[in-house]
């Protein structure tokens, strides 16, 4: 039983509640426990950086200080949301390197009776600990309902690989950790070219046309490869792809029905959990038709148009290219 400190972040409590629920549901199979940081506050997401950098660091620093204080037996702080993860990791990194900043943040935190020692915490994303700590061997052994026949598009979003200096997910230009994880669950993973491209983030609020264009690229890309659904690891990405797909369709005059689920939900399904337990069924874009392929019945499944027929590819001509065993 490995214990991790856990920072849920605002999204996981509200719009990405299903991410949190599914994550908690699969703890027993992964043999891990999470201890939530007591009295954590919002990380400021991407907005606060453009308001006031130092204050943003202080806001995040408070979480780091609380986590350090709470750490008992574990100094790894895990976040499921990519923005929360990146914020925590960035601030921790800057406080280590920038002594002037550190002095200011020390002062700010001291006002609340807190202190953060740079280097005391190891900050990681949920996918990181699942892939690198738990490992594919263990995950494979827990699969009871393999996702055979389901074509998935692994979508990392822009944040977790920018930066990824230690190649935690593979080559940052072309990560493969989520791909391999989904393969271990039995799914057919497509070679999604936009796997690290931006979903638009908060552009849906600020400049919707830009967001719709970006979302269109992602969804049409997945569709071109005949994906049944997109698998993501960030609440923002899931929100955009799912909740704004309808608006995107209207704006671009398209008719996509590409559901978007979290990787923890896919793991839960593969481990045999009930979809309701994993928060599946609340999406804007119904995942029912896709999940029907693996024999999962969703409650309140509506009538949806059948998925488009597969384009057959005949193997003629030259042998297809191969990537080899691992990704360099």
């Amino acid at each position: 039983m490995t214990k991790y400190l856990f920072y849920p972040g605002c999204s996981m409590q509200k719009n990405a509640r299903s991410y949190l629920d599914s994550m908690m549901a699969i703890r027993p199979e992964l043999d891990i426990t999470f201890e939530e940081v007591d009295d954590w506050n919002c990380c400021g997401a991407t907005e606060y950086w453009s308001v006031h950098q130092v204050k943003a660091h202080a806001l995040i620093g408070r979480n780091l200080a609380l986590a350090e204080q709470q750490a008992n037996g574990s100094n790894t702080l895990v976040a499921g949301c990519s923005a929360c993860y990146l914020n925590l990791a960035k601030t921790a990194n800057y406080l280590e390197e920038d002594l002037q900043l550190r002095a200011k943040i020390d002062d700010a935190l001291a006002v609340g009776g807190l202190h953060f020692t740079p280097g005391s915490l190891d900050i990681r994303h949920l996918l990181d600990i699942v892939f690198n700590d738990v490992g594919l061997e263990k995950i494979r052994s827990k699969v009871v309902r393999p996702l055979t026949g389901l074509r998935v598009a692994p979508y990392y979003g822009c944040m977790i690989v920018r930066p990824d200096r230690e190649n935690r997910y593979g080559n940052p230009e072309y990560p493969t950790a989520l791909d391999k994880l989904l393969e271990a669950l039995g799914a057919t993973v497509i070679d999604f070219p936009q796997k690290t491209h931006c979903c638009g983030g908060h552009m849906t609020q600020i400049s919707p046309e830009v967001a719709y264009e970006l979302l269109h690229r992602l969804i049409s890309g997945a569709d071109r490869y005949n994906a049944d659904l997109i698998v993501t690891l960030c609440p923002m990405c899931q929100l955009n792809l799912d909740a704004y797909q309808g608006d995107m369709n209207t704006f671009m005059d398209t008719d996509y029905h590409m559901p978007c689920l979290y990787f923890t939900q896919m793991m839960g399904l593969a481990f045999g959990h009930d979809p309701k337990e994993l928060g599946i069924g609340k999406e804007f874009v119904d995942a029912g038709p896709a999940l029907a392929k693996i024999g999962v019945e969703l409650p309140e499944a509506e009538e949806r148009p059948k998925p488009k027929p597969r384009r057959k590819q005949k193997q003629e001509g030259l042998p297809m290219p191969r990537m080899g065993d691992g990704n360099e």
């Binding site: 230009e173 290219p321 990704n327």
Partner: peptide, 17 residues
């Protein structure tokens, strides 16, 4: 040089590279 080391160029994945 093994062009798979530069995944951005699509060698090994895209048919016509």
């Amino acid at each position: 040089f093994d062009a798979r080391r530069i995944p951005e160029y699509g060698y090994g994945r895209l048919a016509n590279v």
